[in-house]
Design a protein around this nucleic acid. Structure first.
Lengths: 368, 368
DNA sequence: GTTAGCACTCTCACGGCGCGAGTGCCAACG
DNA sequence: CGTTGGCACTCGCGCCGTGAGAGTGCTAAC
């Protein structure tokens, strides 16, 4: 499908116009608003052709034209202009990202909130599920006669702990034995290898009469299952109601409900590589519930096995350019924060402060 | 204000009717539906009196009557019948509560979800802020030459950890020194006592050239501030749209937005004692945004200094009896789960299973 | 004190109508 | 042959008046 220059210009003008006004755009609006040097009649005939190409449509005879999903697709692939973030926006991102990392979960939560604030669309953030995660190390720390802490390290970047009370006395020797046994038998294996027989054997070997081995093993299993689960963080869902296409509450609810269901955001389209942005327009979505919404997702890879997806969902009438560039900027900052080198661990003074030029490398994002 | 028996019966009937239908109830509906042995005309005159008492009102002449907030208040204080949970509901709660505790935050999240599912109203769950929390203990565990884990214990029931990478070598001796110093100087003090001078002194005493003391101190401060913050967990907000009183999206949004703002749920009315339920009707709410919604909150105290509030927000036309008893049941289960004795730490086989009779002690909940 | 009857009031749903926006087509122009 | 102005036509949307229905308050009778 090749469009001549003027058709492109008109398509772009229609979309730009429609994106801001949310109302079908007619020939007159174009000739007065945008810098097109032709008459309304000419535009009408051009628009009629664009309509027969399937890029525009009219909601009813005698209304202006509205872009079709195919029209948006052409726009996104070929016509979209690069959007530059304002200094203010970059400052907002940098400031938000300067925060400490307490937990990855919290960071994702904050990121989602930031994105929805910056784009005015509902946003979600999640880490890709890590199949076959294993525990790399156990530590046991006695607190008092009946209480101790298990410390579990997951693949070099995450540490989880649990405080365990036992009804009976837990001796330091038992802790030492458990440490040796768990580090020997429970590290490097996935959660389904932690069988009842393995647990029973460990219990025997540790001479554990208090039943704490089972608790620690149970905790390990929960943990690994939890890593697989990847809770998505959703925020700004209320923003949806700002857009006239979701005036119908039921429609908005269906979208929000779809996003709220734990396993759904994970299945949304995602870019193939870290740093890319993927745009999915209306019916391109596999999920029935999103057939007349669009999804823009950015991906950010950090370290060997952490992938973060940050996305927004909104009406097909969406300022794709703005949204994509904002998402890209934010995920880049996020990647910098998550990378083992540049994280917020040391010297929480300046991180992000100098990073205003974080978007400098100006590679295109994927547009498919 | 004393009402004779028949007035009470009529008020109760109007409310019960209005709660289910959401439509003004007229004299005929009462005489046919409920077991009142008088004619419509009698009911009309009684209703007129109830109206002059300020307990009922008509949306307009020639519509049925609707309870006023004062009417609901009388109902809640004097007329409400005890609601028994169905076996199914109790089972649902017990099953949900049988889950492991990974984090208090997660538990609150799950509880909120459970409540909103069981009541069909938006629900929130939060812990009361603990002023002046302190750290009771530090542990340092070396991982490799540049990496170690700080383990921080908060008041005997919570443990937090952080993995710290240092650009330079962190010797085991440094960790030992830090352990001694932090346990000596940073335990038992609030976060505002962790001054820059204290940190600098500790840094010197530890002979810390890598700057890790500052990171550990920063982490400690963040942690204590975080405990003060008490993030509320909100869920089921979409439920609000099911109720005709929130047909106006703007109104629903204002309520949801109010609840979403971090510090607001903390300020909501709360029962004075653990185990109580507090009901706040419409204009009794101090918050402007909730002036025509009602709030029902249950409180659950666990251990010395953990207080959990679980509440729902909905239209003033709310089945207070059902909601209150469900909240009460759930918080009781929660309290059992959180109490140091009966928590999910040991032997995760049966907890909650035997607890069907958890509501047995049948003390009244507070109705004010 | 209670009841039946009746006139009155007010809301809400429905249908017809006119306005305005925007189009498609056509004839004229460079 | 592409471009332009003019014109008749179409269609959605908001406005308004009307009628049905529900529920009341009042009054007279039991």
């Amino acid at each position: 499908m090749e469009l001549d220059g003027r058709k492109k210009e008109i398509l772009r003008a229609v979309i730009d116009n429609y994106v801001t006004t949310a109302e079908p755009v007619g020939s007159k609006a174009l000739v007065s608003g945008d810098g097109l040097r032709v008459s309304a009649a000419t535009i009408r005939s051009e628009m009629a052709e664009l309509e027969s190409l399937g890029l525009l449509e009219q909601p009813h005879t005698s209304a202006g034209r509205v872009p079709t999903p195919a029209g948006y697709r052409v726009y996104v692939n070929e016509l979209m202009r690069e959007h530059k973030l304002s200094v203010d926006e970059m400052e907002t991102v940098n400031r938000a990202m300067r925060k400490r990392i307490l937990e990855l979960d919290e960071l994702l939560d904050d990121t989602g909130r930031l994105v929805s604030r910056l784009t005015s669309y509902p946003a979600y953030a999640l880490t890709a599920p890590r199949g076959g995660a294993t525990i790399s190390r156990y530590d046991f720390i006695g607190v008092d006669q009946n209480t101790f802490i298990v410390l579990v390290m997951l693949g070099g970047d995450t540490v989880k702990n649990k405080l365990i009370h036992s009804p009976s006395h837990v001796s330091p020797e038992l802790l030492t034995r458990m440490s040796a046994l768990f580090n020997a038998s429970f590290t490097g294996i996935t959660e389904d290898a932690m069988t009842a027989t393995l647990i029973a054997a460990t219990e025997r070997a540790a001479a554990d009469s208090a039943g704490v081995v089972a608790v620690v093993a149970g905790f390990s299993i929960e943990l690994l299952m939890d890593v697989k689960r990847t809770q998505p963080h959703l925020s700004g869902t209320l923003n949806l109601f700002d857009y006239p296409e979701y005036r119908d509450v039921g429609k908005a609810r269906r979208v929000i409900r779809y996003l709220s269901e734990e396993h759904n955001p994970v299945r949304l389209p995602a870019p193939a590589r870290g740093g890319d942005v993927k745009i999915t327009i209306g019916p391109e979505n596999l999920a029935e519930e999103l057939r007349d919404s669009s999804v823009v997702v950015a991906r950010c890879d950090a370290g060997a096995d952490i992938q973060v997806m940050v996305g927004v969902v909104g009406p097909t009438r969406m300022d794709y350019s703005k949204v994509a560039s904002r998402l890209e900027y934010i995920t880049r900052a996020l990647g910098w924060l998550l990378s083992p080198g540049g994280d917020g661990n040391l010297l929480p003074g300046e991180p992000g402060g100098e990073q205003t030029d974080i978007l400098e490398g100006d590679e295109d994002f994927e547009r498919n």
